[in-house]
């Protein structure tokens, strides 16, 4: 099931990228999909974790939330770069607890933190994250764990 949807996905990918329907190009597409599937099977990477098909329907809602956060954070960092109305930087290193249970949740959380400008995940351990924040406000917002809760709600329905 998983490998089958992987093949379909790869072939659709080929079709959209090439945009040609001649037999020769379709044949080349089939060959490269076969090679890719063989290599990924040999590397043993088509599994629940690296190919989270079961979550793909839930990601759009989370992306909307993340997009809003990214826009907000971008405006904030841009203000601090330009020193707009006395905005200034006060770099912080904070440690926040990691409340995600699964590895996938932890990765989504750490990546989301890094993706919003103004906060970068520096290191990740079993139960905590070390984050470098550009300002006190960004650090204290992270400390509320709001983003972690959103991930639990929107992606994992907890």
């Amino acid at each position: 099931m998983k490998s089958f949807s992987f093949v379909v996905l790869l072939f659709l990918f080929w079709l959209f990228l090439s945009g040609h329907l001649e037999p020769l190009l379709l044949g080349l597409g089939v060959a490269s999909v076969a090679l890719t599937v063989f290599l990924s099977w040999r590397m043993n990477i088509i599994d629940h974790e690296s190919y989270p098909l079961h979550l793909s329907l839930k990601f759009p809602g989370y992306f909307l939330y993340l997009f809003r956060e990214i826009v907000k954070a971008n405006i904030d960092v841009a203000r601090r770069v330009l020193r707009w109305r006395g905005a200034s930087v006060s770099p912080q290193m904070i440690e926040i607890p990691l409340l995600q249970e699964s590895d996938l949740g932890a990765v989504i959380y750490a990546n989301s933190i890094t993706l919003t400008p103004g906060t970068v995940t520096i290191s990740l351990s079993k139960d905590s994250l070390t984050v470098h924040a550009l300002s006190k406000e960004a650090a204290s917002e992270l400390a509320t764990n709001a983003m972690s809760k959103e991930i639990s709600n929107r992606v994992f329905n907890q």
Binding site: I70, V71, N74, V77, A78, V81, V89, P91, T114, L115, T116, P117, G118, T119, V120, I122, H132, L134
Partner: peptide, 17 residues
Amino acid sequence: FHDFYSRLHAAGITDTL
């Protein structure tokens, strides 16, 4: 910005929005 980690945030702006 004055140190490497802060510069990373500035580079983050150009990578995202």
